[in-house]
Amino acid sequence: MIALLRLLSEQPQQWRHGYDLMKQAGLLSGTLYPLLMRMGDQGLVEAQWQAPTQPGRPPRHAYRLTGAGLALAREITDGAPDPSAAVPA
């Protein structure tokens, strides 16, 4: 969840697609989407359907942090180590 909060807080007003978040966070879909759903239920993330950008493509869900989600992201990530950073040996 910290990695996802960190990603979403980089550009909090930008809508992000789940597939892009999955690739950037290094999470599998079976982890990412339930996490986004729980975060939505907690009021940390909002979701919306977006129209396809190319003909023949389905609409896609997009996600972004709410004000509460951004506050939590800032609280958690301030001073927290980046979970994607390599740990020195």
Rank of each mutant, 00 (worst) to 15 (best):
P58L: 14
R16C: 14
R74H: 03
A89H: 10
I76M: 15
A3H: 11
Y63W: 11
Q50A: 07
E75K: 11
D78C: 05
G26T: 01
H17K: 11
P58A: 13
E75S: 10
L35Q: 15
V87H: 03
L5I: 13
S29M: 10
V87P: 00
P12W: 05
L65K: 01
R64T: 00
A68I: 02
Q24D: 15
T31V: 15
G79Q: 04
A80P: 00
R6L: 13
E46T: 05
M37E: 14
P34G: 11
S9F: 03
L27A: 12
R16M: 14
Q13N: 12
L70N: 01
L72S: 03
R16G: 01
A3E: 15
M39K: 02
T66I: 05
L70P: 03
R57E: 11
G18V: 04
R57T: 07
G30M: 10
Q54S: 09
Q42N: 13
R74V: 01
D82F: 03
Q42P: 01
L27Q: 10
P55L: 09
Y33F: 15
D20W: 08
L8F: 07
V45C: 02
P83G: 03
A47N: 04
M39G: 01
M39R: 03
A85D: 09
D41S: 14
G43C: 08
W49C: 06
H61G: 06
I2H: 07
L5N: 06
S9E: 04
